Simulated scan of single mutants.
Amino acid sequence: MSWPAGRGGVGIAGVGTALPGDPVDNAALSRRLGIAPEWVEAFIGTRTRHFAVDLEGGAVRWALEDLCADAADRALADAGADPDDVAFIVVATATPDALMPTTAALVADRLGIDQVPVYQLQSGCSGSVQALALAGALLAGGSREKRGQKPVGLVVGGDVCSKHLDLRQDFRELPATQLVNYVLFGDGAGAVALTRAPEAARARLVRAEHWLSGLGRAPGQRVEWFGQADRHSDRPAVVEDYKSVESLVPVMAREVLDWLLDALDWPAASLGHVLPPQLSGRMTERITRGLRQGLEWEEVSCVAETGNNGNALVFHQLERLLPRLAAGDRAVGIAIESSKWIKAGFAVEATG
């Protein structure tokens, strides 16, 4: 889906995020998994992450619904909006609590929101940009709203990746392709409140784009869903082709940045900030070096502290970006999903 927002775009009125529990550092992870913290630092480069499950006992302590509702509530508060102002909700996730009911519907219920459209997009790291594109199109096209309501589009992204991981096994026997999932990922959620009035918002979302780029390519990541018939399958719940990710994501990120700058007619030198793909601490460093090419923009990253929490990442980056923006500042965000290779990007410009 392509969403060119025109001159005005839509306003980013508020942002909110949520992380479960205390940060888990590499030393704690090392004690639990029996792997060297030096290996995690050298290979992954992520210092901390947050888990919705108890690392010792494996009990689930937070559901995705909990985190998404918390982040959405904070975004509305940041925007000075009430649940009654929400005209629609879009939730992006790769790890819903259940296939039905949708997490989007559960979040709406938790917030006391009724009689509005709710959408859920099933996607990985690019899902939040897909949700922004859908929300922008709904606002620009005139979404249905109640009389007297301030039209607010609530966009939420989150993932609880840890529930797919088996903490009862001998991690010393795991191949690197599976072990990486225990140190790479974290859990979390984020949200933004969008409005039709960018001039009254903290910044404006100018454009959001995403497109499939996986024709003929094997998936770089697969997350299984086990039903009653195949729940005892020997298939691992999560498989990551990290070598393919290392080779393809930096190239795709560069393509997204070049495409957006060209489509917006923005000179590269006019960028003040770039929000690079948040795969891991090490991969983000590598991608950023490839994107920079002598330019002086500021990197906005969070993955070294939050872990790769999927659809939450874009909103955690936006939360860090907005306080740094001065009037007229420009920023570009990039997300690459390795499951079937989806490229996504968005552009933000500060208002006066």
Rank of each mutant, 00 (worst) to 15 (best):
D230C: 11
L261F: 02
S270A: 13
R222K: 13
S244P: 04
D265N: 10
S280M: 01
Q221T: 08
P276A: 06
A263R: 14
G281F: 08
E224W: 09
L264T: 00
M283E: 08
Q278R: 04
L261K: 00
T288V: 14
T284W: 01
R235T: 10
P250D: 05
E255N: 05
L248V: 10
V249S: 05
A269V: 09
R254H: 07
D265E: 12
S244V: 05
V239F: 12
M252G: 06
W259H: 12
R222E: 13
I287Y: 03
V239S: 15
W266Q: 08
R292W: 04
G272M: 13
E285K: 02
A268I: 06
G227L: 10
E255R: 00
G290I: 00
V256G: 07
L279P: 02
P267H: 11
R222Q: 11
D258Q: 03
D234P: 00
P276K: 07
E255S: 04
G272C: 09
V238Q: 02
P267N: 15
W259I: 00
V239Y: 11
V274G: 02
R254S: 08
R292A: 12
G281Q: 03
A269T: 10
R286I: 10
Y242C: 13
S244W: 04
M252D: 08
Q293V: 05
A263Y: 03
F226Y: 10
S280R: 02
F226R: 14
D265K: 06
R222V: 09
L271T: 03
V238G: 09
W266L: 05
V251K: 14
R282K: 14
D241H: 08
E224M: 14
Q293M: 15
P236K: 02
E240A: 13
L264D: 07
L279K: 04
R286A: 13
R235E: 12
K243L: 10
H232R: 15
R292K: 10
P250T: 01
V251P: 05
A268K: 04
E285W: 06
A263Q: 15
V274N: 04
F226P: 08
D265H: 15
K243G: 11
V256K: 02
